[in-house]
């Protein structure tokens, strides 16, 4: 028991090592929140381009670019994308690594959000587009006021899940020496040479956040169902 207490002390208390975890958590949350924003923005834009092309045959060039973006991003691991952005796109530039992380994970998430949103748009009955058009609403207005609000409601749970996935994926940020939550645990591990406590602590923190978010998503879903019933 004494030995365990000593390990607890060495892992978290000595030299304020717990700060590696709290600071890491902060970095992880900052990256996740801003990456989600970039991802949503990018995802919605790409999805609208793709859906518009599917429905009307317009925006050929934008659709082509979007397709390349989706193929490349979904066809390569996020860690490789992160390294490419850090060492190739921003080669020889001193750049804030948190920003690099946000950018990499945002661009990555955008591709997944785009496909979620597109499926949401495509799931809306064609009659809704026609009803909008018959009232004189043009395509962008119909999309914005009629289609997207309905699609958004349908895909909200999937979008929330994407946020949760993103939060966990940011754990590879340590590869560009970003001190996120996972890296925080690794740093403690590298000074105490003791794996159990730091890893379990890191896992627990992720778990608590994810479970918390999931229960929020669950609540949201139930509320949406209620409003569906009227």
């Amino acid at each position: 028991m004494d030995e365990f207490a000593q390990k607890l002390y060495d892992t978290f208390i000595l030299d304020d090592r717990w700060k590696y975890l709290t600071n890491g958590l902060c970095t992880t949350l900052i990256i996740t929140v801003f990456a989600v924003m970039i991802g949503m923005l990018l995802g919605f834009l790409v999805a609208i381009v793709r859906a518009t092309h599917d429905k009307t045959g317009k925006l050929k060039i934008l659709n082509f670019i979007s397709k390349i973006y989706l193929t490349v991003i979904r066809g390569t691991p996020v860690m490789v994308q992160l390294l490419i952005i850090y060492y190739i796109i921003f080669a020889s530039v001193r750049i804030d690594k948190t920003f690099v992380g946000i950018l990499a994970f945002g661009i990555n998430s955008g591709a997944y959000v785009a496909e979620i949103v597109r499926s949401g748009i495509m799931s809306i009955d064609q009659g809704q587009f026609e009803a909008g058009a018959s009232l004189g609403l043009n395509y962008p207005k119909t999309m914005l006021f009629i289609i997207l609000p309905q699609a958004f409601k349908n895909i909200l749970p999937a979008l929330a899940n994407e946020c949760i996935v993103l939060l966990k994926e940011t754990s590879v940020a340590g590869y560009i020496a970003l001190e996120d939550l996972t890296k925080g645990g690794d740093i403690i591990r590298s000074v105490t040479y003791e794996a159990f406590l730091p890893l379990i602590a890191v896992a627990l923190i992720y778990l608590i956040i994810v479970v918390g978010l999931s229960s929020l998503v669950g609540k949201l879903e139930r509320r949406l169902k209620k409003s569906d019933r009227g």
Partner: peptide, 8 residues
Amino acid sequence: FQHFNLFP
């Protein structure tokens, strides 16, 4: 329209 197409 036949199927109303109201905005739900």
